[in-house]
Simulated scan of single mutants.
Amino acid sequence: MITTFEPVEPVAAPGFTPERTLAILDIACRAVGLDHTGAQLLRHHTNAVYRLVSAPVVVKIDRPHQGATAVDVVALVRWLRARQVSVVGLASVRQPMEIDGCVVTFWQYLPQYREIIAPDLAEPLSMLHSLRTRPPQWLPARHLAGTFTRIARSIAASRILTPEHRALLRAERARLAARAAEVTFVLPPGLIHGDAHHRNMLWDNETDRAVLCDWESVAYGHPEWDLVTLEVHCRRFAHPAVEYEKFCHAYGFDIRTWSGYPWLRDLRELRMITTNAYKSAPGTPCAREVLRRIDALRAGTASRWNIL
């Protein structure tokens, strides 16, 4: 159950903008007795992430969930930590809360003194994927079907796509949907992170281990989705190949050896392209990068991507 603190005044700024999220940050911090003065904006894309300077706390503001049921990530993270899964800790305030349609959560700030590399994800993902009991709260359970639905909605709602772009992306979605029944997954289904890559992992210096963060895409599904997500990030964003090889050795499975890999790889990349097409404003660097990826998809070239 998501807690809403009263009174919560609607924030007038339309869209998911820094102006809107800064106003939400103000309301949220006052509700739990934190000072947001001088807060540093760390990221503003999939969600808004602010680091407080008054306390070792990071505040995350999710995009509005537009009527869909939101996963209670606070309850989930508490459940995972009780089972020794390596996840970032929560700040000691009452949470989560919902303000102006956006879920707000508070997390421990972990200063980063070294970069995350692919092998760091092996142990936390293995621990997550090995869980055989379900957490008590609701989680999405039709992950692949939901992926095709989200791709279609992102194509329709994007403000940067031309009719030709939409036709190309819809044709690629149809191609992949037509082959879905042919794919046989080999790993036991269960709890998946949903967006497992370097930037959704932090290094905890106190425990000297990597911890998972950013749970907006968590679901019940096929672990192959998490594994192909990391493979796509390593390949498209030009991480050293040896790092992904080390991940595969530590995790115990190389997604590239699985017969369904080309299909799931293409589906994951299409999801990334269309999601960013939906999130990007016209004329921005993000929009130009998305359109460049679409041009490469049309040409069938294996281009390197720039991180958004």
Score class of each variant (00 low, 15 high):
residue 287 A to T: 07
residue 97 M to W: 09
residue 185 F to T: 04
residue 179 R to N: 04
residue 170 R to C: 11
residue 92 S to C: 01
residue 65 H to A: 07
residue 33 G to M: 00
residue 275 T to M: 04
residue 178 A to V: 01
residue 203 W to M: 04
residue 195 D to C: 03
residue 159 R to E: 14
residue 140 P to A: 06
residue 16 F to W: 05
residue 122 A to D: 14
residue 279 K to E: 14
residue 29 C to T: 12
residue 8 V to E: 15
residue 168 L to C: 14
residue 94 R to S: 11
residue 79 W to V: 09
residue 54 S to K: 04
residue 199 R to M: 11
residue 198 H to L: 14
residue 226 D to N: 14
residue 27 I to D: 13
residue 248 C to T: 15
residue 149 T to I: 03
residue 298 R to H: 13
residue 170 R to L: 14
residue 293 R to T: 01
residue 247 F to Q: 09
residue 110 L to C: 13
residue 257 T to P: 00
residue 29 C to Q: 09
residue 211 V to P: 02
residue 207 T to E: 15
residue 279 K to I: 11
residue 268 R to P: 01
residue 34 L to M: 10
residue 190 G to K: 08
residue 298 R to M: 02
residue 177 A to G: 02
residue 144 L to A: 06
residue 255 I to V: 15
residue 200 N to C: 05
residue 103 V to I: 13
residue 106 F to L: 03
residue 214 D to W: 01
residue 33 G to Y: 01
residue 53 V to T: 14
residue 107 W to D: 01
residue 99 I to H: 08
residue 283 G to M: 02
residue 266 D to Y: 00
residue 296 A to W: 08
residue 98 E to V: 15
residue 224 E to F: 02
residue 137 Q to H: 05
residue 99 I to F: 07
residue 256 R to S: 10
residue 221 G to P: 02
residue 245 E to G: 07
residue 240 P to C: 02
residue 269 E to I: 03
residue 122 A to E: 13
residue 275 T to A: 06
residue 50 Y to F: 13
residue 265 R to T: 05
residue 24 I to H: 05
residue 129 H to I: 09
residue 284 T to V: 06
residue 24 I to S: 02
residue 52 L to T: 03
residue 52 L to V: 03
residue 223 P to R: 07
residue 271 R to P: 00
residue 89 G to M: 11
residue 230 L to Q: 13
residue 44 H to T: 08
residue 41 L to N: 13
residue 298 R to F: 04
residue 305 W to G: 00
residue 302 A to L: 03
residue 225 W to R: 08
residue 36 H to E: 15
residue 124 P to F: 06
residue 102 C to V: 08
residue 233 H to S: 10
